[in-house]
């Protein structure tokens, strides 16, 4: 598979900006519109651009699925932390009168985990589709 020179050149320019925008959407999920799923989808699009630049075979799909399972476990663990402090599942572990800047740590952490999980999942989906189309 050989791509046109213009597409490769524009992809090289565009790739870092899309990557930075994805991370921005994930990390600022509690301040600006966006969040885990949206940022993860943008990150997956950025990784999709790399397939235009370097058309190689992909054989890391099993590793991606395994990593996604681990991240899902971590999301459940972080979400269940409130069982220890408050006695109920799936809410902020810090008490309500705590400072806002401390409570945001939980939001940023969970946004980051969900964002990386969604990005890895979408990358695994279209990697397997690309490999299927190439064989």
């Amino acid at each position: 598979m050989k791509n046109s020179q213009i597409l490769v050149c524009i992809s090289r320019v565009l790739f870092p900006f899309v990557l930075v925008f994805g991370f921005y959407v994930i990390v600022n999920g509690h301040l600006t519109p966006g969040g885990g799923f949206q940022g993860g989808a943008i990150l997956a699009t950025a990784i999709l651009i790399t397939y235009f630049i370097i058309p190689e075979r992909i054989n890391i799909i099993d590793g991606l699925v395994r990593l996604e399972k681990h991240l899902f476990l971590w999301i459940i663990v972080v979400g269940s932390l409130s069982l220890i402090t408050k006695g109920t599942f799936f809410t902020n572990p810090l008490p309500i009168p705590a400072a806002i800047s401390f409570k945001r740590i939980f939001l940023v952490l969970l946004n980051f985990l969900i964002g990386s999980k969604v990005a890895i999942g979408l990358v695994a989906i279209f990697s397997s589709f690309i490999e299927e189309g190439r064989s």
Binding site: G34, F37, Q38, A41, T45, L48, I125, F126, F129
Partner: peptide
Amino acid sequence: APDVALAEIAVGSAIMPLILIISISK
């Protein structure tokens, strides 16, 4: 609804057409 717009752009206009085009080439 800028949240929904971000998700729609990323999924609907980049990933879904890719999957469709790969299926067509298959």
